[in-house]
Measured scan of single mutants.
Amino acid sequence: LADDRTLLMAGVSHDLRTPLTRIRLATEMMSEQDGYLAESINKDIEECNAIIEQFIDYLR
């Protein structure tokens, strides 16, 4: 059971955070005209990261 939990934490961490990191990188490359959009996307990314952290904390 502990091994399954560790594997799940690693999978969640990698499989969800990697795309979020790519999205954040894309927002950094957006033009200044789209700053409001990038800010909104980054806020959503932070919310997703917080949910992931809560899930990982729960698994521990």
Results as ranks from 00 to 15, higher is better:
residue 23 I to F: 02
residue 21 T to K: 14
residue 3 D to L: 11
residue 42 N to Y: 02
residue 2 A to F: 10
residue 50 A to W: 08
residue 59 L to Y: 12
residue 7 L to K: 15
residue 54 Q to I: 11
residue 11 G to D: 09
residue 2 A to E: 04
residue 49 N to K: 06
residue 56 I to T: 12
residue 2 A to M: 03
residue 10 A to T: 00
residue 25 L to Y: 09
residue 35 G to Q: 06
residue 32 E to G: 07
residue 7 L to R: 09
residue 41 I to R: 03
residue 42 N to K: 00
residue 32 E to H: 07
residue 26 A to M: 01
residue 28 E to W: 00
residue 53 E to N: 13
residue 21 T to I: 04
residue 20 L to A: 07
residue 43 K to F: 15
residue 35 G to Y: 10
residue 4 D to A: 12
residue 58 Y to L: 04
residue 8 L to Y: 03
residue 4 D to T: 10
residue 4 D to E: 08
residue 56 I to D: 00
residue 2 A to V: 07
residue 16 L to S: 13
residue 23 I to H: 02
residue 35 G to F: 06
residue 35 G to S: 06
residue 45 I to H: 03
residue 21 T to C: 04
residue 43 K to W: 11
residue 55 F to S: 04
residue 40 S to Q: 03
residue 19 P to I: 07
residue 35 G to N: 07
residue 15 D to R: 00
residue 33 Q to K: 06
residue 53 E to Y: 14
residue 8 L to A: 05
residue 52 I to N: 07
residue 38 A to V: 00
residue 37 L to C: 03
residue 2 A to I: 15
residue 58 Y to H: 14
residue 24 R to F: 10
residue 19 P to Q: 11
residue 11 G to T: 13
residue 54 Q to C: 04
residue 15 D to A: 02
residue 14 H to P: 03
residue 54 Q to W: 10
residue 45 I to Q: 09
residue 56 I to F: 07
residue 46 E to L: 05
residue 45 I to L: 15
residue 45 I to W: 10
residue 10 A to P: 00
residue 44 D to T: 05
residue 1 L to C: 12
residue 1 L to A: 11
residue 40 S to C: 15
residue 8 L to C: 05
residue 44 D to H: 10
residue 29 M to E: 03
residue 13 S to Y: 01
residue 5 R to P: 09
residue 56 I to A: 12
residue 47 E to P: 02
residue 52 I to G: 14
residue 47 E to G: 07
residue 26 A to P: 15
residue 53 E to Q: 11
residue 24 R to D: 00
residue 49 N to W: 15
residue 34 D to V: 11
residue 23 I to N: 01
residue 5 R to I: 09
residue 10 A to V: 00
residue 2 A to C: 13
residue 4 D to F: 07
residue 20 L to Y: 01
residue 31 S to I: 06
residue 14 H to R: 00
residue 9 M to R: 02
residue 36 Y to G: 15
residue 48 C to R: 12
residue 46 E to P: 10
residue 1 L to S: 11
residue 19 P to C: 00
residue 37 L to E: 15
residue 38 A to Q: 00
residue 35 G to P: 07
residue 27 T to R: 06
residue 42 N to I: 13
residue 40 S to M: 14
residue 59 L to K: 08
residue 47 E to A: 15
residue 39 E to W: 08
residue 14 H to W: 01
residue 30 M to T: 12
residue 1 L to G: 13
residue 44 D to A: 03
residue 28 E to L: 08
residue 53 E to A: 09
residue 9 M to G: 00
residue 55 F to G: 00
residue 8 L to K: 04
residue 29 M to F: 09
residue 50 A to N: 00
residue 26 A to H: 01
residue 13 S to T: 04
residue 34 D to I: 08
residue 53 E to I: 15
residue 51 I to S: 10
residue 15 D to N: 00
residue 5 R to S: 10
residue 48 C to A: 03
residue 39 E to A: 13
residue 27 T to Q: 02
residue 33 Q to Y: 14
residue 22 R to N: 00
residue 59 L to W: 04
residue 37 L to Y: 06
residue 18 T to D: 11
residue 58 Y to W: 01
residue 22 R to M: 03
residue 30 M to L: 05
residue 45 I to Y: 08
residue 24 R to H: 01
residue 13 S to W: 14
residue 36 Y to P: 08
residue 19 P to F: 11
residue 15 D to K: 00
residue 11 G to L: 07
residue 59 L to P: 10
residue 36 Y to D: 04
residue 23 I to R: 00
residue 38 A to N: 07
residue 1 L to K: 00
residue 33 Q to G: 06
residue 45 I to T: 06
residue 9 M to Y: 02
residue 3 D to R: 05
residue 36 Y to T: 03
residue 25 L to D: 04
residue 7 L to H: 06
residue 50 A to T: 03
residue 23 I to M: 00
residue 26 A to V: 08
residue 29 M to N: 13
residue 32 E to T: 06
residue 40 S to V: 02
residue 46 E to I: 07
residue 14 H to D: 02
residue 29 M to A: 00
residue 25 L to A: 15
residue 3 D to A: 04
residue 51 I to W: 14
residue 40 S to E: 11
residue 55 F to P: 04
residue 32 E to Y: 06
residue 26 A to Q: 13
residue 57 D to S: 03
residue 46 E to H: 11
residue 9 M to A: 14
residue 27 T to S: 13
residue 30 M to F: 14
residue 15 D to Q: 01
residue 43 K to N: 03
residue 50 A to H: 04
residue 8 L to W: 09
residue 30 M to Q: 09
residue 40 S to H: 10
residue 29 M to T: 10
residue 37 L to S: 04
residue 58 Y to S: 10
residue 38 A to W: 11
residue 55 F to V: 05
residue 17 R to L: 04
residue 49 N to R: 06
residue 33 Q to W: 00
residue 36 Y to N: 14
residue 59 L to V: 08
residue 42 N to T: 03
residue 53 E to L: 11
residue 36 Y to Q: 10
residue 46 E to W: 09
residue 48 C to N: 14
residue 50 A to I: 04
residue 59 L to A: 10
residue 26 A to N: 11
residue 14 H to S: 00
residue 50 A to D: 05
residue 29 M to L: 07
residue 55 F to E: 03
residue 21 T to H: 09
residue 16 L to E: 02
residue 9 M to N: 12
residue 26 A to W: 01
residue 40 S to T: 04
residue 22 R to H: 02
residue 56 I to G: 14
residue 48 C to F: 02
residue 34 D to W: 02
residue 55 F to L: 12
residue 48 C to K: 03
residue 48 C to W: 13
residue 41 I to N: 06
residue 32 E to Q: 06
residue 20 L to E: 07
residue 55 F to A: 00
residue 19 P to L: 12
